[in-house]
Amino acid sequence: MHIEQYLDATYLKTAEQAGISKKDNLEIVKKNIQEAIQCNFKLIMLRPEFVALAKEMIMDSNSKVTIGTVIDFPKGDKSTEFKIVEAKKAIKDGADDLDFVIDYEAFKRGEIDLVKEQVLFCTQLGLDNNKIVKWIIEVAALTNHQIVQLCALIKNTIIAHFKESNYENVFIKSSTGFYKTTDGSPNGATIATIKLMLENSFPLPVKAAGGVRNYQEATEMIRLGVKRIGTSAAKTIVEGKESKSDY
């Protein structure tokens, strides 16, 4: 198994979140990009402001690593128009994958038409520009029933409006990794939630993100059927070690 080709190596902390200077945070970003190139990961996932830097470093290295970024991160509560503007900038800067945070709170309030609209318009933008689109549903903020419903909403919207040949390029993704649970329960991918997602997202692929920190966990997710794994522990995983990362 070439596990590195399942891994979206991820660094999404701001300098403030990391408790360091912007200069030091930039150095960490550069280090993560370089590691992705050296380890031949599928993708490097960064905040939008670092996409152009990643594009430059990857092109200079003649690497095949692709670049992903997050849109309306981490809460997903901005307008559809906001998401589109941010996504257009990321496309211009060289992003290959666009990981949109869905407005899961609007979904929980019953604003179904709004959520369908953002799925339709943002996915259309991504596919029209030959990008891979992923929808982050933030499983830790949802009940099991809501996970099932939201996966079905995204799936049915895609099936209703896009060709079957596009399905493989529209993922449903578990988590941002930044959601704070009140009871200390996992804030990312678990076996139980990933099984629910896989059962209710097909034929769309699933990306497990948040909390996958070692080789055993990663391979178990792959065996279940996920096509991508988003993790800040990509290098640790391919080395067969355990990460102590908190996201």
Rank of each mutant, 00 (worst) to 15 (best):
residue 112 I to L: 13
residue 166 N to V: 04
residue 46 L to Y: 03
residue 95 A to H: 08
residue 32 N to E: 04
residue 120 L to I: 03
residue 113 D to Y: 06
residue 222 I to P: 11
residue 212 V to G: 02
residue 199 E to R: 05
residue 153 L to K: 09
residue 168 E to Q: 15
residue 113 D to E: 15
residue 18 A to F: 01
residue 34 Q to G: 00
residue 225 G to T: 00
residue 184 G to D: 12
residue 202 F to K: 10
residue 177 G to V: 03
residue 73 F to K: 03
residue 10 T to E: 02
residue 153 L to R: 11
residue 114 L to W: 08
residue 186 P to V: 00
residue 237 I to F: 15
residue 12 L to F: 13
residue 223 R to P: 00
residue 112 I to M: 08
residue 113 D to T: 07
residue 107 F to D: 00
residue 174 S to A: 13
residue 129 N to Y: 13
residue 181 T to I: 07
residue 129 N to F: 12
residue 2 H to N: 14
residue 10 T to N: 04
residue 179 Y to I: 09
residue 22 K to S: 12
residue 116 K to Q: 14
residue 84 I to V: 11
residue 54 A to D: 07
residue 92 K to Y: 05
residue 177 G to R: 06
residue 201 S to M: 14
residue 198 L to V: 05
residue 184 G to Y: 14
residue 229 I to F: 07
residue 222 I to C: 06
residue 114 L to F: 04
residue 237 I to G: 14
residue 212 V to Q: 05
residue 236 T to M: 03
residue 31 K to D: 12
residue 34 Q to Y: 02
residue 208 A to F: 00
residue 164 E to I: 11
residue 177 G to I: 03
residue 67 I to W: 05
residue 84 I to C: 03
residue 19 G to L: 12
residue 183 D to E: 12
residue 100 F to I: 09
residue 221 M to D: 08
residue 200 N to V: 00
residue 246 D to I: 02
residue 90 A to G: 11
residue 146 Q to C: 07
residue 215 Y to K: 12
residue 62 N to S: 11
residue 34 Q to M: 10
residue 62 N to V: 06
residue 190 T to L: 02
residue 119 V to I: 15
residue 111 E to M: 04
residue 193 T to W: 00
residue 224 L to G: 10
residue 168 E to G: 14
residue 15 A to D: 07
residue 16 E to H: 08
residue 92 K to R: 04
residue 158 I to Y: 14
residue 92 K to G: 01
residue 164 E to Q: 15
residue 227 K to V: 10
residue 194 I to Q: 06
residue 150 L to Q: 13
residue 58 I to S: 01
residue 43 L to G: 00
residue 109 R to N: 10
residue 205 P to W: 09
residue 145 H to T: 13
residue 71 I to W: 10
residue 68 G to M: 10
residue 106 A to T: 01
residue 14 T to V: 10
